[in-house]
Design a protein around this nucleic acid. Sequence first.
DNA 1: CTTTGCACCTGTTGGC
DNA 2: TGCCAACAGGTGCAAA
Length: 290
Amino acid sequence: MVGDLTNGPRPGAGFAPLSMPELPEVETTRRGLAPAVVGRRIAAVSIYDRRLRWPVPRALERNLAGRAIDALDRRSKYLLFRLGGDTLIVHLGMTGSLRRYPAAPRRSPHDHVDVLLDDGSTLRYHDPRRFGAILWVAGDAAGHPLLASLGPEPFDPHFDAESLYRETRGRRQSIKQALMGNHLVVGVGNIYASESLFRAGIRPTRAAGRLTRRDAAALVDTVRSTLADAIARGGTTLRDYVDSRGEPGTFQFDCAVYDREGLPCPRCATAVRAVRQGGRSTYFCPRCQR
DNA sequence: CTTTGCACCTGTTGGC
DNA sequence: TGCCAACAGGTGCAAA
């Protein structure tokens, strides 16, 4: 906070829109954008920086100009803009944001792409770490390599206790890493993996194959309830996440264990512990989670 | 096949 | 105050 007065970004520019999205943040962005963009036509595209996980396609402007946006869908953490039968895929990576402005705002560092719509509004893609992606797919993107091998959506009936139990048999990988693998279920990133496992009373380090049927059933429920609660709160803002209007989420205030090492478990008051799994921080209550 | 670790990047933070 | 290592919400990919 104090730092804002000394080395904060240019005064007046205020907040630099960064974001690090798990599914709730992507869904919040989708819900914020959809009413304003669906039915609109793309008037122009400006590309300022093609460097993302993969280079922004050279043909993007030619592909998009004049096209109408028929729908804005989400698959896992990918946003899917439907244009006729074709698809624009947008992934926000760790620090990407997609914001809508009524009129084109001033450029700032790390702005990559502007999409000008026929009502004069601008969609701006901004991504400092450049882990995100913007891809063009001729046709429905369901068969695209990035989407083809994804597991079920968390709210899809196909994600259920029986299949989770079956899919984890024989797996030695920790349940936390398995949950984040986008194969058992999609959209559960580092924050919500810890939170879902806390709610289910399962220790993150337990081998996935050691889940009982009861555990699997509990985990399906808590993955859903955790994600639903986070969506209802507009996502989690730990540092900089903002939605399509620049508003932060508030789920961080509901986190039971994430980023709370040493603080009391909200259920039993035992100190929350932190460990590292696959290079990522994991948080859990050593008493409530076995 | 499963699992692990690295790689891609910039920006912020905390410890010395 | 300054410097530097560690870390940050994702995930594709090579290698074991």
